[in-house]
Each structure stands twice: as structure tokens, then as C-alpha cells.
Design a protein around this nucleic acid. Structure first.
Lengths: 116, 116
DNA sequence: ACGCACTTTCGACGGATGTCGAACATCGCA
DNA sequence: TGCGATGTTCGACATCCGTCGAAAGTGCGT
């Protein structure tokens, strides 16, 4: 059978207005996911496998799904790589200042240790 | 045996510097607890039983414990009532702007519905 | 002294969560 | 065409979470 141009299922992202605060807070309440968000803050986008988190690939995939479905990140496919990016604009519109405040809080939480 | 002035176990509160961001975010990721926080924002303190949340007393007690142990609220005993108050000063010192930003986000999350 | 009102603690239960390994799918390259 | 790299899905598992009811503790008022 002919392979279509879009054979993989569409990645589900919530609409900007549908982003739920509780989902976002829950997504950010996990250290692994927070690490992903922090790194993504200083880069436009990044491939999944290139994050310095110490979990199994399947676990990482799960975390990306949580972040995506909560509206924190977008994911785009290119070849067999999946690039993730923070939804800074949408988040800022929906919950002004939230992302920056939380990331600033993260810096204080980790203190002088493990900066950047 | 003589009843001491402090016969009930001390309520455990984390020190201001020990308040953990992940604990706070987790505490705030529950609607019932967020409701408590929102109400407490506009009042200096309030007795446990007077919150308009629709859960069993034991469940409510559990939520207060989570909020207290994460450092979001303080609890003070007076007779057989327990009064709760937001740790606004400590939270502001530890994570500047976090509380206000999250509560502002909550207002947007709930939209025009169920204000204040 | 008795009982009522306010809360907590305990035990239980169903559901969600984070984690992993194994298997599968897709793409690029030799 | 076949292999390796990248990621996902599935099933399993232990743990945690929110919820409740029953029981117990404490203080106030009658």
C-alpha cells in the first residue's frame, strides 16, 4: 500500500486557550520534566535524545508526552527525530509571567548547585 | 498525670530556606488545595472547617497537611480549632513573585466563571 | 459530668504516576 | 536490501495520591 506523506499520527497539542493551569503545574512538579523545560528555555528547539537526563528512553518519551499534552512544549517531527520547543508565546498569553517566575524559582531552589 | 501546656504534637513546618519548589508546585496542582490558597490570599487566617470545599473532613485534613509540609501555609492551634494562614513572606523571599503569578494564572484559568 | 463540635489519625481502596524492558516503527546510509 | 539510530507503544510493577468512613482526642458549653 502507498505510503502517505503523513503516516504517523498527529501529535496532540492543546489549543492555547485550553491550556490548564493544574496540568501545567503538575507537569512542572517533576524534576526530570523541569530539567527539560529549563534547558529548552535557552534554546529554540532540541531533539529528544539530546537531553542530559538519566532515564530510560521510554521514560523520557513519557515525560515529553506529559509536557506536550499539558501545553508546555510543542513537538515537531523531522525524519526520525522529534524536536521539542517551549510554547513560550502561548504560555505567556495564557498565564503571563508564569514560566519566567517558575524558572527563576527553580534557580533559587537548586541554589548555587547545578547552575544553568 | 499533669497535663502540660503543650500536649499536642508540634505542627511540622519547613524552614523558609528549606521550602522545596517541587513540593510547592505539587501542592498547588490540586484544585481543592488551590482553592484553599486562593481564599487564604485575601484573609489573614481562617479556621479549617470554614472553607467552602466539598470533601470529607479527613480529606480536608490531608490537604492541609500537604500544604503545611510543603511550606505554603502555617497552622496555629487555638482551643480545638486550627487556623491556617498563607506563608506569604516566606514564600516571597524564597520564590519571589511565584504566589502572585500562580494566583493570577488561576484567575485566568477559571476564566469569567467562579471568580474570587 | 456529659455530650457536642472541630480535627486528626488510621486503614482501606481505586486510580494515577514514574519507571523499566521488550518489541515495533521510521528513516538514513552503506 | 539490510542495518543502525532515534523514538514510541505496550505491558508490568511498585509507589504515591486523593478519597472516604470509623475511631479517637481535645475543649467548650450545658
Amino acid at each position: 500500500m502507498p505510503r502517505s506523506t503523513r503516516r504517523r499520527p498527529e501529535l496532540s497539542h492543546p489549543a492555547p486557550e485550553e491550556i490548564d493551569l493544574y496540568d501545567v503545574l503538575h507537569a512542572l512538579s517533576d524534576p526530570t520534566r523541569m530539567t527539560i523545560v529549563r534547558i529548552l528555555r535557552s534554546e529554540p528547539e532540541r531533539a529528544c535524545g539530546t537531553f542530559p537526563v538519566d532515564v530510560a528512553p521510554s521514560t523520557l518519551s513519557h515525560h515529553f508526552k506529559v509536557l506536550r499534552e499539558s501545553g508546555v512544549i510543542t513537538q515537531r517531527e523531522e525524519a526520525n527525530r522529534r524536536f521539542s520547543a517551549l510554547r513560550v508565546v502561548d504560555l505567556e498569553r495564557r498565564f503571563p509571567g508564569l514560566l519566567d517566575t517558575v524558572l527563576a524559582a527553580l534557580a533559587r531552589n537548586d541554589g548555587a548547585a547545578q547552575g544553568a
